[in-house]
């Protein structure tokens, strides 16, 4: 193996680059450590803004409170259910939409029309009220499907998938079809096994987006028990600054203005994504690069 000798200048450049990268990493990590430290601190110290990256008045009461809290446990349950269902439904629909659309218009007449329909919905999304009516008339309000189905076919994912399928040599499919493989078999036994990186990438997108979505939870729920975790969390980030009309209102706001408790809840929402990210990351980078190049 050939080794290139580093010159003095190279070392300097490297040092500068590492320095900048470390700085970037630190600026990303400090807020996370701050939240973690606040969650483990005494709430009076937290409100006073005294907590930096290590806890003051260390205690774990916030976490014990959370695990006795019915509302957040329900919300976690809703979120998990949503992510699992979305993962299954979205992947099936995206693959089934992308495979035919990735064929040429000789094999798939009017492919261009279908493609425009997909791209068109990307450009002109529906606004809130019509979406609400649709979901309501389908009797999905308050069900988990109201969160899963409206976003089940991500156009962006379909296009990524199409491009990836197109990057697989046509000859593979031709030889398979000469051997008598049906389109289903070609998709399931040739295309999908070759597309693991893009499948993993899209799966990660689906999981992260579904985990992080909060607004649909607010609109399509019937009871607060239907709130997914992020909707629940969004309701905790309160500004005690509205026009308060009586003391009871203050008291009810106060219970959520406990900064330590809110921080602990934020930490808990971060955990699942932090856990899956390292395993998916290698696919993530390779998948999105390959999928984005169009021949």
């Amino acid at each position: 193996m050939l080794t290139i000798k580093k010159t003095k200048q190279d070392y300097i450049t490297d040092t500068i680059i590492y320095f900048i990268l470390i700085l970037l990493a630190v600026t990303t990590l400090i807020p996370l450590f701050n939240i973690l430290a606040v969650s483990l601190s005494d709430s009076a110290k937290a409100t006073a803004g005294l907590v930096t990256v290590y806890p003051l008045g260390f205690n774990m009461t916030t976490y014990t409170t959370i695990f006795k809290d019915h509302a957040i446990l329900t919300a976690i349950g809703v979120s998990f259910k949503r992510v699992v269902l979305a993962l299954i439904v979205d992947m099936v629909l995206v693959v089934l939409a992308a495979y035919p659309l990735s064929r040429s218009s000789k094999v798939f007449p009017f492919r261009g029309v279908y493609m425009w329909i997909v791209v068109g919905t990307m450009l002109f999304g529906p606004s809130m009220i019509p979406m609400f009516f649709t979901v309501k008339d389908l009797h999905l309000l308050g069900t988990i499907w109201a969160l899963v189905l409206p976003g089940a076919v991500g156009q962006f994912y379909v296009i990524l998938m199409i491009n990836y399928f197109r990057s697989i040599p046509m000859e593979l499919e031709e030889s398979a079809s000469i051997d008598g493989a049906s389109p289903w078999r070609r998709l399931l036994q040739i295309y999908l096994p070759l597309s693991k990186p893009i499948v993993a990438t899209i799966a990660l997108f689906v999981v992260v987006n579904n985990w992080n979505a909060y607004y649909d939870g607010l609109i399509y729920s019937i009871n607060t028990d239907d709130y997914p975790l992020q909707t629940y969390i969004q309701q905790l980030v309160v500004n005690l600054d509205m026009s308060i009309r009586d003391v009871d209102q203050v008291k009810s706001l106060l219970t959520v203005s406990n900064r330590s408790l809110t921080a602990a809840k934020l930490v808990i929402t971060m955990v699942p994504i932090l856990l899956i990210y390292p395993f998916m990351q290698k696919y993530f980078i390779s998948g999105i690069m390959i999928g984005s190049v169009k021949e």
């Binding site: 009220i129 609109i219 969004q234 980030v237």
Partner: peptide
Amino acid sequence: AWTTSDQNFAFEQKVNL
């Protein structure tokens, strides 16, 4: 018939819908 959170005007949004 339904409930919303008491924060961030979730209730008002629901009523408007």
